[in-house]
């Protein structure tokens, strides 16, 4: 493992052309607001693209900083995966996004590439109900197993709780409209 910085940071335009050269028109949109480089890519090529970003020597985004999801309720496609990457060698950061439709809320798992994706994807599954194809252990991570629905979806009722033990004074619950 190299310990010195061997390459200058890759320019965003170089990254875009590298992606275009490898995959064709896979980048649906790109932005660079305030120096935050962002690419929106096709969901179907999710795993291939991130594999390329990780393994290509000139890019080498070897660290998965964060993986999360956004529910744009009312828009189509409804969900958006967000991944933040960091290349240790060059210090370059990149944000990769992909939209996911509600009726087929699936995307390829990144757990084979980064082990840190394992629990992050479990959290996204728990909160948003996105199913990760190829994940080794896709279970809820924060909520309990018998919990129904996905609480961070915008159409989950704001105050709906699912108690595991009978609550004392249940009529109080009704009064407060829970």
């Amino acid at each position: 493992m190299a310990s010195t910085k061997t390459s200058a940071p890759v320019a965003f335009s170089d990254l875009l052309s590298a992606l275009k050269g490898r995959f064709g028109d896979v980048v649906l949109a790109h932005r660079s607001d305030f120096g935050d480089d962002t690419v929106v890519v096709q969901r179907e090529r999710w795993l291939d693209i991130l594999q390329f970003l990780k393994d290509a020597p000139s890019l080498a985004f070897n660290y998965l900083v964060d993986l999360t999801c956004v529910d744009y309720f009312g828009q189509e496609p409804r969900f958006e995966m967000v991944v933040h990457l960091l290349a240790f060698e060059s210090g370059k950061r990149l944000r990769v996004k992909a939209r996911i439709p509600e009726e087929d809320a699936t995307i390829a798992s990144l757990a084979p590439l980064w082990r840190s994706a394992n629990w992050l994807e479990r959290e996204v599954y728990d909160m948003f109900g996105i199913r990760f194809v190829g994940h080794p252990d896709l279970r809820r991570i924060l909520m309990y197993d018998e919990f129904e629905g996905y609480p961070l979806r915008k159409d989950y009722p704001l105050k709906k709780s699912q108690p595991r033990v009978p609550l004392l004074s249940p009529e109080r619950e009704e009064e407060e409209g829970i």
Partner: peptide
């Protein structure tokens, strides 16, 4: 806290 996760007071479970 008033949401899907929080018990609104421990007296809902035990005296």
């Amino acid at each position: 806290y008033d949401n899907y996760t929080t018990v609104r007071g421990a007296d809902r479970i035990i005296p």
